[in-house]
């Protein structure tokens, strides 16, 4: 694996429904450390499946997937990889409703052997960074859509991941809140030098990235 690359994928194939539905049909992809890449394509093109493969949420049928030095086709339990290297941001915030904003951000830290105080400090710092210091004790239902997504970004950053994977992060927001979230993500990429891979079907959003990859029928369009 080239040392400059954080993601190296070769001839990745994935199908569902016992092979009846082909999602990825021979993907070759390299992403450099610190890059901001957007993945676009129509619905059902396989872009979210590709993102799930990079984040080790799903397994390849064929081909090789190397991410942050891990060979994702080899190991059975990839929870440690996800905990150390990946931060996910979903279209829907997916916050836990009965926990406070602060507790939601602490959730990924359970696997990191930190004391309660250390967990709290790190979560508070991230919420301050996201401009939510005054909302730490609120429940997700007491926040606006944009605020919830900012909490979700703070949660994704909790484990100090090397890659942030965002699947339509502005898809459920109005344009004003969507813009705010994109600014946060761009700032994150520029200041923290974190690798950002974002799936979107919106070409305006995609244009913010350093590089745009278009997926069509399970292949990267060249």
């Amino acid at each position: 694996m080239n040392e400059e690359n954080i993601v190296e994928i070769k001839d990745l194939r994935k199908s569902f429904d016992k092979g009846k539905v082909t999602a990825l049909n021979g993907i070759d992809l390299e992403i450099k450390k610190g890059e901001f890449v957007s993945i676009t394509g129509p619905s059902g093109s396989g872009k979210s499946t590709l993102l799930n493969m990079i984040g080790a949420l799903d397994r390849a049928d064929e081909g090789s997937v190397h991410v942050a030095g891990y060979d994702l086709t080899l190991k059975n339990d990839l929870s440690e990889f996800r905990s150390r290297e990946i931060g996910f941001i979903f279209q829907l915030h997916n916050l836990i409703p009965n926990l406070s904003v602060l507790e939601n951000v602490e959730i990924p830290l359970f696997e990191r052997n930190l004391s309660g105080e250390e967990m709290r400090e790190r979560a508070l710092k991230l919420l301050e960074y996201m401009g939510l210091s005054d909302k730490v004790n609120r429940k997700p239902t007491e926040l606006s859509g944009g605020e919830r997504q900012r909490v979700a970004i703070a949660r994704a950053l909790a484990n100090e991941p090397s890659i942030i994977l965002a699947d339509e992060p502005t898809g459920s927001l109005d344009s004003k809140n969507g813009q705010l979230i994109l600014e946060h993500l761009r700032e994150l990429h520029e200041k923290e030098k974190v690798t950002l891979i974002m799936v979107t079907h919106d070409m305006n959003v995609a244009s913010l990235a350093n590089r745009t990859i278009e997926v069509l029928d399970g292949r990267i369009k060249t």
């Binding site: 996800r82 905990s83 990946i86 996910f88 959730i107 484990n159």
Partner: peptide, 16 residues
């Protein structure tokens, strides 16, 4: 179910 998916995505082990 969805919440459990999120917990797995943020790195929780099956055991936890």
């Amino acid at each position: 179910t969805r919440e459990i998916g999120v917990l797995k995505a943020v790195g929780w082990k099956n055991r936890r």
